[in-house]
């Protein structure tokens, strides 16, 4: 590894340290390759020449930091992303929920909200929305506001409709939104049981007694230690028997808490928190 490369890596680490100390957002335990890529992207987009110039700018210019924050938190998602996953939720998880009087779902790292509305639609179509509460959290206020508004670009609706059908949707997807100019506005009846709030998986604590946690394509950005801490947080936030849903390339298999979860659908990365494990019982 040559020296310039090494110095650059140190400078990137210093930027993450600066962001944490100044603004409280902790990216220090994120997987480095992707973070560096995004910092470099912001560097080429701005008029700054060096990484240390960028550090000075972000410490003294809140607006610049806000735009950098949007770069650092990936916010690309779609409704019914991985249709086979949502099909499995519909066919395997929802029937379990039907045995319960009330359902609590947590979308951790909900971004601009596409997956929240997907879940809301699934619950509604199974007559369970009225007895459900969906917690939608993200660390980024800008995307959280987007999620809250429930307004999406109309041109995306074509793809979302295809996903919806592949995920086993039988209704007319267009009934769930109103088209207005270039926007699709999600139906208010889907929003009323969603609670939006700011929550940071790296620095904030437990959400109690969830029946299902969806956190898809968030953990891929974390290093192994941070992943483990978040798995612990999820374990403590789920009731025994509650479901944990990860992205298609994420797994709990290699974490310290794998024994506390069982596979529901390995390929779709749906797990279930087992009851009190035998080894933890005091006899």
């Amino acid at each position: 590894m040559d020296k310039t490369n090494e110095s650059e890596k140190i400078e990137f680490d210093l930027i993450l340290q600066a962001i944490y100390q100044k603004y409280g957002y902790d990216f220090r335990d994120y997987a480095k390759a992707s973070i560096r890529r995004r910092l470099r992207y912001r560097l080429t987009q701005s008029n700054l020449k060096t990484i240390s110039e960028m550090q000075h700018k972000l410490l003294n210019d809140k607006e610049f930091f806000d735009s950098l924050l949007l770069d650092l938190t990936i916010n690309v998602t779609e409704m019914f992303r991985d249709p086979s996953f949502f099909k499995t939720i519909r066919e395997v998880v929802i029937p379990e929920f039907k045995k319960q009087p009330f359902i609590k779902v947590w979308h951790a790292g909900c971004s601009s909200g596409e997956e929240i509305y997907s879940t809301a639609i699934l619950l509604k179509e199974n007559g369970m929305y009225e007895s459900s509460l969906i917690y939608a959290t993200d660390t980024n206020e800008v995307v959280l506001d987007k999620a809250k508004s429930g307004i999406f670009p109309i041109e995306k609706m074509k793809d979302f409709t295809v996903n919806y059908r592949k995920a086993g949707g039988l209704a007319s997807f267009a009934d769930y939104y109103t088209a207005k100019y270039d926007s699709a506005i999600m139906d208010n009846s889907l929003k009323k049981n969603i609670v939006f709030s700011n929550h940071n998986l790296v620095t904030d604590g437990v959400f109690g007694e969830m029946d299902m946690i969806m956190c898809r394509n968030v953990l891929i950005y974390f290093n192994r230690e941070l992943q483990d801490r978040v798995f612990r947080l999820f374990m403590d936030s789920l009731r025994p028997g509650g479901f944990l849903c990860l992205g298609s390339k994420e797994t709990i298999r290699f974490s310290s808490y794998s024994d506390n979860f069982e596979n529901v659908a390995e390929k779709e990365k749906i797990y279930r928190r087992v009851g009190v494990p035998l080894k933890n019982l005091k006899i």
Partner: peptide
């Protein structure tokens, strides 16, 4: 490389992924 993800390499010679655009 899996479909629908960007593939990246970390300093320790492991794969990481991203769903950025």
């Amino acid at each position: 490389a899996p479909p629908n993800y960007h593939l990246l390499i970390e300093d320790d010679g492991t794969f990481s992924m991203s769903v950025e655009g």
